[in-house]
Design a protein around this nucleic acid. Sequence first.
DNA 1: CGTTTGTTTGAAATAACTCAACGGGAGTGG
DNA 2: CCACTCCCGTTGAGTTATTTCAAACAAACG
Lengths: 207, 207
Amino acid sequence: MAVPEPKKDVCSFRRHQYLARAGEAQDHIYRLEEGWACRFRVLRDGRRQIVALFLPGELCEPQWLLSHRADLPVVALTPLRATTIGMDVADAHQQHRRDLLDPVYDAMLQALNRQAEWIVNLGRKTAAERICALIHDIFTRLRNNGRLIGDRFAMPLTQYDIADIVGLTPVHVNRVFKSLRREGIIDLKSRSMWIADPTAMQQLAAE
Amino acid sequence: MAVPEPKKDVCSFRRHQYLARAGEAQDHIYRLEEGWACRFRVLRDGRRQIVALFLPGELCEPQWLLSHRADLPVVALTPLRATTIGMDVADAHQQHRRDLLDPVYDAMLQALNRQAEWIVNLGRKTAAERICALIHDIFTRLRNNGRLIGDRFAMPLTQYDIADIVGLTPVHVNRVFKSLRREGIIDLKSRSMWIADPTAMQQLAAE
DNA sequence: CGTTTGTTTGAAATAACTCAACGGGAGTGG
DNA sequence: CCACTCCCGTTGAGTTATTTCAAACAAACG
């Protein structure tokens, strides 16, 4: 009996284009092939906080397969190429296709753990520790997805983006970067980053 | 054909007793009947951050059914009574028992949303806003579970606990409480809390 | 080539922290 | 029943990390 593989449509987004609006119904999730995206929340007075970061090679918002709904907006941080994974995969439930479902559950569990980690970062770490934690997290995830370029990796985030991830001011993010650079811990030019020592970086992140 | 209902064992814990240690394998989850618990993380230098709060009537760590593992420790904040929900419920997958599974998935989705909300609170809100958000969240959840006592509700958290939730110092938590009390927004005595106006409280939480 | 977006820096203001001390209440043991 | 301890709440004074405001500069962009 032939079970059809789920169909994968390709789609692309411009920078700052929405992948989902708050409250919108969703009948598919994304897998990012190229480019970065994030989920965020804006308070009434304009304060903005990014609550999830999606890197190339990762599943974006796997929990939509359970909730069928985007609770928060998702927007492209860079130009983006993605494939869609439709709800038909959710029917794998009935088809005993754990092989299709496991990556989705896995991504959900990872998301849950990463969010817990960010609560720790925001609640209990200094500015420098938060930024080092972010850099180390990005480095590790890009490496896991085979996205290192020599001893460097893409860092397309602006200092405003980073500020909205680590819960600081863009100005202060800039000062921390300046200090990390001065001490030779990182090198960052034209959206490409190098870090001297990943293990040392993890220490600085107070992991 | 008779499908057996999942068996529910009752168990109880003392305050500060662990429901799970970090990294431990788990073959069941809990439903809290009475008492509060939390998941937390301690950094090497002792800084502590609570990343999830579990109130009476709620499922505790539903994602264990997927991961079979406690990534972070869970501890009782008060004396605790709970029932267990075993892995056999996970087999509901194969039995098409969505009726058993839905509450679990629902709890997972709620946990995910609450965590996102806390990232916003910690990243972008002032001390008073964070504490009001916590009070409002607790009030709402207790009300949803029918745990209000007249116009009051149980608040067994110490100011140390609260500090570790909202990412502040116990001393500063105390000062914020003092100010909320002075303005007649809350009343708190002998572990029982009253709030003047839930809607106003939500406003103070910067929503 | 002008415009916009992002980075960098300085000086002053402030929210939250640290340190230190005291007081009350709840157990506990004599 | 008292004394002792421990935990928790409370308060004050001084310090610091981060923000705010303002401005200039660089880079990307159409």
